[in-house]
Design a protein around this nucleic acid. Structure first.
Lengths: 206, 206
DNA sequence: CCAAAAATAGTACAGATGTACTACGCTCTA
DNA sequence: TAGAGCGTAGTACATCTGTACTATTTTTGG
């Protein structure tokens, strides 16, 4: 069995390698600390039975790199490793079609069980986290493309006039969009909107 | 030798325990996943020779919990473990007087050497990161208490009047503070200020 | 104790922001 | 083809925001 382990924390890799050996007979582990290295390894290999991918990788995150892994080794089930028990992240991961989401807080016994499950074609997602996520019944926020564009510019601290210039429209139009955005996000001003955008993952804090 | 290992990632603890055993003869390792548990362990123990503390812990972060560790076991050298190679964080850690800062990306050989150094009374800080930190010459941003309070409220999307009400001062005064904050942060409006505050770690995105 | 820094507060003003309207063209779908 | 939704744009208006002043009181450090 061939496993590829991508995580920038060398010691965590060491710990996980021990766990993987409990998985069974002949486990052959390739490891690296970045997506870029992982791509090279896959190209030089004959495919893996399992890819364990840290979501929080430097340069190219696991989420960003996921598609490339799919291309390079379409048959390998991909499991996300994550330091954060983030409900949204898990949902996104599942949407992206990963076969598992393993929080690094899990102890080795549970991880072994989870990986066995995944190797048999199942999925593993920590239930406590999914239950948590069900609660809020948090209504999906849907914005039009234009609204997302403008929300992004708002989040950069741009003024209405600047936004109008950038998009080549009248600043009255910008205001109309902004009013609409505020209603959808249920906020009253651009600073609240910016933070709402952050929380919804619509913008990133650079 | 007694070592306390506080990290919420069970597998990382496993990896690190292996490394610690390389440190020498009789290493006795206590481990847990949160500061709260760690406090209990220290109270029930006779003191440690080394405390390894993850900075990014749930509920109480390593940085927040540091003082309490100091109180409970003043003689134990404290070493931060961190998943992020963050220059600012390292500087802050050193200011707080920790004896070492170990990025989780380090491999085991280097960690062993670093821990040996620290056990002998030295300090370990990854040089590549410190060099990096020198470059930006990023001037420290110093705000008064009042300014921080107001910056926080700005980041919550509060209007000047609301801030004035909350703090029990005139909204003219709020404006004066805000003008000062903008100059210090080199920004032009409250949304930019909110994001600058985020980047500087002055507020958290809840 | 004095000087500097911080916090307070006022007046004044230009410009930005947010809302409420109306209105028109475009695209898609029933 | 009618209606819905989107993007565009205008007018009007009340309010908020940010800056530039001046000025007083409190706190703090040398």
């Amino acid at each position: 069995m061939r496993v590829l382990l991508v995580d920038d924390h060398a010691l965590f890799r060491d710990g996980l390698k021990l766990v993987l050996k409990q998985l069974g007979e002949e486990v052959e582990i390739s490891e690296c600390g970045t997506c870029e290295e992982a791509y090279e390894i896959i190209k030089e290999s004959e495919g893996f039975n399992l890819i364990l991918l840290d979501v929080d990788l430097p340069v190219i995150s696991g989420i960003e790199g996921l598609q490339e892994f799919r291309k390079l080794d379409p048959s390998a089930p991909i499991v996300f490793l994550s330091g954060a028990d983030d409900q949204k992240l898990i949902r996104k991961a599942l949407e992206l079609g990963v076969m598992g989401y393993i929080p690094k807080t899990l102890n080795s016994e549970i991880i072994v069980q989870a990986l066995r499950l995944i190797m048999k074609g199942g999925r593993y997602v920590p239930d406590n986290i999914l239950l948590q996520a069900d609660e809020p019944a948090h209504q999906e926020i849907i914005l039009t493309m234009r609204q997302k564009e403008i929300l992004n510019l708002i989040s950069q601290g741009k003024a209405n006039k600047e936004i109008a210039n950038i998009l080549g429209i009248a600043d009255n139009t910008v205001r109309v969009h902004i009013s609409a955005i505020f209603q959808i996000l249920k906020v009253n001003n651009r600073t609240e909107a910016a933070f709402a955008a952050l929380q919804e993952g619509l913008v990133s804090p650079y």
